[in-house]
Amino acid sequence: MTAGTFSPAPGAAPFLRQVTTQASMEARLMLRNGEQLLLAVVIPVIVLIGGVRGADRVNLSYGVDTFTPGVLALAVMSTSFTSLAIATGFERRYGVIKRLGTSPLSRTGLLLGKVLALLLVEVLQVAVISAVGFALGWEPHADVLGLLLAVVLGTAAFASLGLLVAGSLRAEATLAAANLIYLLLLAGGAVVLPVSAYGSFGDVVSYLPSGALGEAMRAALSDAAIAGRDLLVLAAWAVIGAAATARTFTWE
């Protein structure tokens, strides 16, 4: 048999290349999509500028030093929960996950690719939001390890919950639910404003993943501290979400 154009030469790419290929594709698609970009960057920046200016006007005690970490937490939540849920919901609908299921990319590779894509987008979000924060006069007192832990554990908690929604609902229902939950948490989840702003309700809110992520982010960037309790709450949500997702998620 002579070697033709299609002569078989099968083989999987190295695992790392598969994961980075998948991650860069997912990140590109996320940034190319108008609604996703709105959610990832535009809304957080509006909330930051609006919050700082608005608080100034009504003599609220919160300033840019409180809002910037809160908006960074909001950005992590929007990407790892809302964007991931919507994207995954439509991937199931359009047979993308089914198609990739017969490619050399394993389930683990796909999951790692998704996580890496989220982190890439989050780096971009942190850069843009911090720049706006600095322009508004933000002076952080940062603990880098605390920041990294907050981003990673917050992403893990919200991503596992996002996959839970995407894996158990139809694509349209996922779209609606992910946006609704995002709005509810934005308004009442202690993500942008600190738990202390919620009065007696604050105890409850601090156990939500949004409240825990907001507090962990404020501790890391305003007090140069590592908020052990809040990080534990996030870790617990990640475990609960991952266990529930593992039981319910179907790839088709």
Binding site: P10, A12, F90, Y94, V96, R99
Partner: peptide, 15 residues
């Protein structure tokens, strides 16, 4: 999986 190719009846790509 690396040794086979599969063409589905429909779909299989991001929109």
């Amino acid at each position: 999986l690396p040794r086979i190719g599969v063409m589905l009846q429909s779909g299989g790509a991001w929109s």
